[in-house]
Amino acid sequence: MADPHIKSEMDWIDYTSVILYRLGFLLAGPSVLLLPWQTGYPVLELCFVAAAFCACCLHIYMKSFRMTLQAATWVGLLCYLFGFEMIGLGGAFVTLGGLCFKEYFCFKVPGLPAQPLLLAGLWGAMVLGFPVVAQTLAGISALLFLVVSVAKWRMPLHYDIGDKSKYEI
């Protein structure tokens, strides 16, 4: 997590990673919203793209948290590729939910700390075959993704980077 009062020098990799991270949140909203509706579009894949954008480009000082959130998406993607789609989706949800929880401390969006639980409930409702519950949870979750995405895009890009000397490598 960054310190907004510190403006580290940014190179093209920093700008690209911040933009991809924010795009991940932007894509997460519609992909999560459409997951339980069986639209025929590659919504599950879009959800993995959103999680991968966030996972590969997240800026968290503490290495153990950063690696845990990244590993959840990469292991989830492997599960998806080997035919365990719902287990893989759970990994993507761990990353997206965890990052929403982290972003709560930046933006204080009401309900954002509940995003990991909403995504867990959505995953469970989809696995157990409760479409109305899944659609309701997907709508609430998508709204939270939209709110955090708008908040992220409104702030300067350097806020996501913070003090480069604080990152555990």
Rank of each mutant, 00 (worst) to 15 (best):
F53Y: 08
V132G: 02
M155L: 13
G111F: 06
L89R: 08
L78W: 13
W74A: 04
Q135F: 01
E45G: 15
V148C: 05
L112M: 08
G83P: 12
P116M: 10
L146R: 00
Y61T: 09
V147W: 03
K102P: 00
L128P: 03
P110F: 02
Q135S: 09
A120I: 11
Y61Q: 14
G88W: 08
L77Y: 08
S64H: 10
H59S: 15
G76A: 05
K63D: 12
C54S: 13
C79T: 00
V109K: 04
G91A: 13
G98D: 10
A50N: 06
L58Q: 14
W153D: 01
L99D: 05
V147Q: 00
V132Q: 10
Q70M: 14
G88A: 03
K63S: 06
T95G: 11
V49W: 06
A52G: 10
G121R: 07
L69M: 15
V132A: 11
R66Y: 13
L69T: 07
F101I: 01
A134T: 02
F84N: 12
L137I: 02
G83R: 07
A55V: 05
A50P: 12
G121E: 07
F107S: 02
H59R: 15
M62A: 09
V75R: 03
A120V: 14
L146H: 00
A55G: 04
L44Q: 10
L96E: 03
L78F: 13
Q115N: 01
F145Y: 14
F65K: 15
F82N: 08
F130G: 00
G97L: 10
A114R: 04
L81N: 07
V49H: 08
E45T: 14
Q70W: 09
F84M: 15
A92G: 14
T73C: 03
A55M: 11
C79M: 13
F130D: 02
F107N: 03
L146T: 01
G129C: 09
A92F: 05
L128I: 06
F107C: 03
L118T: 02
W74S: 03
E103L: 15
A125H: 08
